[in-house]
Computed example of a mutant assay.
Amino acid sequence: MRRSAFIFAATLALGAAACQQPALAAESVVTAPQAKRIAKEGEGLKTAIFAGGCFWGVEGVFSHVKGVTSAVSGYHGGTERSARYDIVSSGITDHAEAVKVTYDPSVIRYDQLLRIFFSVVTDPTQLNRQGPDTGPQYRNALIPTSAEQLAVAKAYLAQLTAAKLWDRPIVTKIERAQAFYPAEGYHQDFMLNNPRHGYIVRWDAPKVAALKQLYPGVYTASFQRN
């Protein structure tokens, strides 16, 4: 079932019942290795874009990472005219649901964000889908915004491929940074504002729990508001 249908059905069908059940495991949780190539990005806040399926969970995880000052859900690529949820969710545009992450590299580096991304956010072996969501708009991709991020992303994907942590091949792509269009207001801070939503309970809350368990040193309970 696509998340677009889940929005309307989950709260009614799962709703309160779902939030009373123990959190189920996220679709892919691994302990990704530390990056061999350390990001050297200098001083000042940096931004990076991550596409990893439903942007609710991507935003939710990064919002709990120390050093992240903002995590904005939106649509990467495509055109401004069609950057609307009702259109993007149909899968007919070139957009990817994505999250623009602003962070302080003196606290959390880009290579560390990559490690978190592949450990608890996305399953890099799923092509044009994540969990219950299918379609190219749910593809997983890295969208570097600088030459340094690009070099680090390439090196880390090569490192993960050699490590063979997954039984299937990694299909995550590196995409050229294009326009990023913030999603509608109700999508922002969705996990924070809707913790009992059936989709959040089933698919996204376990990712935050995994972040806390695997990387307690970077986890923060203070949700970064957009």
Rank of each mutant, 00 (worst) to 15 (best):
V61G: 04
Y75P: 01
V58C: 06
T69P: 07
S70I: 04
E59K: 03
Y75M: 01
V72S: 02
A71S: 13
G53L: 06
V72P: 11
S63R: 12
V65L: 08
S63C: 05
E59R: 02
E59I: 00
G67I: 04
F55R: 06
S63Y: 01
G60C: 02
V61E: 10
G78W: 12
G57A: 13
F50L: 15
T79C: 03
F50A: 05
V58S: 00
E59M: 06
F50Y: 10
G60S: 14
V72W: 00
W56H: 08
E80S: 14
A71N: 07
C54L: 03
F50D: 04
G77T: 07
G74V: 02
W56E: 04
S82H: 14
C54A: 04
G60K: 11
Y75W: 11
V68L: 13
F55V: 06
K66Y: 02
Y75N: 09
K66T: 07
S70Q: 15
T79W: 04
S70M: 05
V61K: 11
G60Y: 14
A71F: 03
W56F: 04
S63P: 01
H64Q: 02
A71M: 07
G78N: 07
T79Q: 10
G74M: 11
H64K: 05
V68D: 09
G52H: 06
F55D: 07
K66N: 09
V58T: 15
G52Q: 03
A51G: 14
G57R: 06
G57V: 00
K66L: 05
R81G: 11
F62W: 10
G57S: 07
G74A: 09
F55C: 11
G67H: 03
G77N: 01
V68P: 09
A51S: 15
H64D: 04
Y75C: 10
S63M: 00
E59T: 06
S73Q: 00
